[in-house]
Design a protein around this nucleic acid. Structure first.
Length: 797
RNA sequence: GGGCCCGUGGUCUAGCGGUUAUGACGCCACCUUCACAUGGUGGAGAUCAGAGGUUCGAUUCCUCUCGGGCCCACCA
């Protein structure tokens, strides 16, 4: 019996606090393990609405799987690695990392992290997310941080494995270089931005021929011009094939060639190929076997190859050379151009292409394997698979792993100063080669120099399933639980987090890292815009929770739309509406629990009908939940709750359940009460993963059990439903139609809904309500209900 | 340039060969009906983006166009 009149936010908070404190969802390590590789949110900002909703979904999965008898590994992780922390430290202390020295800078980063609030964790707890634990530690299921020693040690250990398999090499190649971050970045970290730039038309001399005009956006790279290209179809330039042009200012002879890469209708239709203006150029040089002249150094300044531009930053150099060309009359014209320029995904700086020595992880030779994995794994939604396939197909270079940064996992390598031999650290320890010596010595006895570079943070992130499954920490559990069951993540990080993880786990285990991949879209603001700090439209889930509660937010998240197929708009109005649903559920429960259950029950047809309907709902929900679809079942259960159960069935059997006038037998009364409870109990079970707090409260008050420890309902035995099962849907439709008609008629006659009726005559189409006659009589205070061949329902007063 | 997703009442959504085209929010009218006014009942509101095609029949399948979003790519 429910005592309280309403469901309150205070009660909701009490329950989530309890979960937070008591760890009721601790991993119990039974036979069937279900593991979720949660995406650790970044700690430097509190989580926003998008995180909240995605974690709510993951919580649906976790809670459902527990009800299905799985031991669910659902870890809380926090991402604390990488550049954003460093940038925050540089900003706060007004320094540059390389000025203060490594040791000191790392301390500054730690300071920033100490100040990072644990608001995110609080929000998760308040949302009722059933993490295996909220306590931080190394044990399986405990909360973890990506900069912890044990996480970084694992990163290094897996690197050592890959090194020993011969999959890592060091090489000097042209890389994507971010001048802002002062490090190499991988293709996966390159983004693009539409920008306005200027394109300069420059005069080149040609041997024994008239000058040609070449258009370029990168005049400062003139010294690196290696060849000049025109389209083979282009009649204007055909005669120049094989001749040589002289670069202006630098007076270098370069060959003129026909090549399909040149588009006749762009610029002047003839272009200079320099090392390196963009990714195209890099591939061209590689394909043609041309020797590159690198003009830009690691400091972002022009080097001595650039001649008179030496020492200038790129921007400045461009200005300088344009002025010089103009002065000499070599600049024909300048135009504006919309250009898609490669930028660094994190710092948004334009990428430069320079030659650097870096460590690479082989990935090109795994393309076929990766495609096979991509085809084999189950994707929810299926259409997201293509994103991964496209990315794999487009790979053209191995993965540069090393970064010239600080707050990240160090590369556990030492180099012998004498013989150049590379010594790799031993497993079982977290190594910091820049400050300590390895256990081994070089064979030649030479002095060892510790590596100062660190790993790409994706190298850390891509080991998350191994970390959570206890690889290297708990061999027994790892063996039992690998591969990880589910990877839930956003579609924008398919090319990074998902791809890199699949690659690395394949290289280590020769198996797919996951069974299922759940790819979600995003939460937009009420106007359908992306949430962004700069727009100021970021919705704080804490504010929503304060106003409407986490249960309303959770219910809304389930029914707003299908997040694996489209973006969801966040609407306070609709979230508010779901707190009404919670209230409705509360009141229904209060009503049902006001009847004393028990005694021999005889099920009337209306009861069988409801049970049959409830069972079909259970079947549907079970099937859909197991495919990560909570949207449609939630909508259906919600509809059942409001319409079929509350408005119609409840009104129909109220009379029988009260049985004040003794019109029904005790058994029939008990039948109504049994069915009310049957439906309520099953509804609570179906809703438990979605709205865990209110269902827990109601379930324990009425049934004296913890709803989250129950098995997911199985479809009731068919004899209960009996013949009502057949045509149940049509019967329910008839019932709804008849009730509506009677209510409408009474209202039109300005009668109370309880006003007595002499007779209701039902037409042929509602003949299927035969078995419900007694309940209908009671519900509408009708003396008699009969059937005729008429088309319409008739009512006699 | 290529690929993927999406265009259904004011807003958001279901349907995916035959429905009087779901449902929610909002709107209007009436109602203290004993679980609930965070309620009840009723109502207005949709040429299912546009044009072709396949079909006896298309919101549902195909093609194209327009509009929105995302991803990839070698336009200097």
């Amino acid at each position: 019996m429910l005592k309280e009149n309403t469901w309150t936010l205070a009660e909701e908070k009490k329950i989530s606090d309890e979960w937070h404190k008591k760890e009721p969802y601790r991993l119990d390590r039974k036979e069937k393990i279900y593991s979720i590789d949660t995406p650790p949110p970044y700690v430097n900002a509190p989580i926003h609405m998008g995180h909240a909703v995605v974690y709510i979904y993951m919580d649906f999965f976790a809670r459902y799987k527990r009800m299905k008898g799985f031991s669910v590994l659902f870890p809380l992780g926090l991402d604390r690695n990488g550049l954003p922390i460093e940038l925050a430290a540089e900003k706060k202390f007004g320094i540059r990392a390389e000025q203060v020295g490594r040791e000191k800078f790392l301390e500054m980063c730690k300071k920033i992290l100490e100040e990072a609030s644990n608001e995110s964790v609080k929000t998760f707890a308040r949302l009722g997310i059933s993490f295996s634990s909220y306590k931080f530690g190394e044990k399986i299921g405990q909360a973890y941080e990506t900069d912890s020693e044990s996480y970084r040690r694992l990163s290094q250990e897996t690197f050592i494995d890959l090194w020993e398999k011969g999959l890592v090499y060091e090489a000097s190649k042209v890389v994507n270089y971010c001048p802002g971050c002062r490090t190499t970045i991988a293709d996966a970290e390159v983004a693009y931005e539409e920008r306005e730039t200027e394109i300069y038309h420059i005069k080149f001399k040609v041997e024994q021929d008239k000058d040609i005009i070449i258009a370029t956006t990168r005049p400062e790279l003139l010294a690196a011009c290696a060849t000049i290209l025109f389209n083979p179809e282009d009649k204007r330039y055909k005669k120049l094939a094989g001749k040589h042009a002289i670069t202006p200012l630098y007076e270098k002879e370069v060959r003129i060639k026909a090549h399909p890469i040149a588009k006749s209708d762009f610029g002047s239709g003839i272009l200079m190929m320099c090392s390196f203006g963009d990714l195209t150029d890099i591939r061209f040089f590689r394909d043609e076997g041309l020797k590159a002249h690198i003009l830009i150094g690691i400091d972002g300044k022009m080097n001595k190859n650039a001649g008179f531009l030496e020492g200038m930053y790129v921007k400045q150099a461009r200005k300088e050379i344009v002025a010089k060309l103009k002065e000499k009359g070599l600049l024909v014209k300048t135009e504006n151009l919309q250009q898609r320029a490669p930028i660094c995904e994190r710092s948004k700086d334009p990428i430069e292409f320079i030659a650097l020595e870096e460590y690479y992880l082989k990935q090109l030779e795994f393309k076929e394997k990766m495609l096979q994995v991509a085809h084999k794994i189950k994707f929810y939604d299926e259409s997201s698979r293509q994103i991964l396939i496209d990315w794999i197909n487009g790979l053209s270079e191995d993965w540069p792993l090393s970064r010239r940064r600080y707050y990240a996992t160090p590369i556990p390598i030492w180099k012998c100063k004498k013989c150049g031999e590379k010594i790799i650290g031993k497993k079982g320890k977290y190594w910091q080669p820049w400050r300590e010596a390895p256990e081994k010595k070089c064979k030649c006895g030479g002095e060892l120099e510790g590596e100062t570079r660190v790993f790409d943070t994706w190298f850390d992130s891509s080991i998350s399933p191994h970390y959570i499954l206890g690889y290297g920490r708990d061999a027994g559990f790892f063996k039992k639980s690998f591969p990880c069951t589910l990877r839930p993540q956003g579609k924008e990080i398919v090319r990074t987090w998902l791809y890199y993880t699949l690659l690395r786990i394949w290289q280590l285990e020769k198996k797919s890292a996951f069974e299922d991949i759940w790819i979600h879209y995003h939460i937009l603001d009420a106007q359908g815009r992306k949430m962004a700090k700069s727009v100021g439209n970021v919705i704080d889930p804490q504010k929503i929770i304060e106003k409407f509660g986490s249960e309303a937010l959770r219910f809304w998240a389930a029914i707003e739309g299908n997040i694996i197929k489209q973006d969801l708009r966040c609407s306070e109005e609709r979230i508010a509406a779901e707190s009404k649903t919670l209230n409705k559920l509360w009141n229904i429960s209060k009503f049902v629990s006001s009847f004393k259950a028990g005694g021999r029950a005889k099920l009337c047809e209306a009861d069988k009908l409801m049970i049959a309907h409830m069972d079909s709902l259970i079947k549907f929900a079970d099937k859909e939940y197991s495919g990560y679809n909570f949207f449609e079942p939630a909508v259906k259960v919600r509809h059942f709750l409001w319409e079929i159960f509350a408005s119609h069935y409840l009104e129909l059997v109220k009379g029988r359940a009260y049985n004040g006038e003794g019109k029904f037998s005790k058994e029939e009364q008990a039948g109504a009460i049994f069915t009310l409870n049957y439906c309520l109990e099953k509804m609570l079970l179906l809703l438990a993963p979605i709205v865990p707090a209110i269902t827990e409260k109601i379930f324990s008050d009425i049934y004296d059990k913890n709803v989250h420890e129950q098995e997911f309902p199985k479809v009731g035995k068919s004899e209960k439903a009996g013949s009502a099962g057949r045509g149940a849907k049509a019967k329910i439709e008839s019932l709804l139609a008849v009730n509506s008609f009677v209510w409408k008629t009474k209202r039109e006659k300005q009668l109370s809904l309880k006003a007595p009726l002499k007779e209701i005559v039902l037409p042929k189409e509602h003949e299927n309500l035969h078995g419900l006659v007694e309940d209908l009589k009671a519900a509408h205070s009708a003396e008699k209900i009969s059937f005729s061949s008429a088309k319409e329902i008739q009512i006699r007063f």
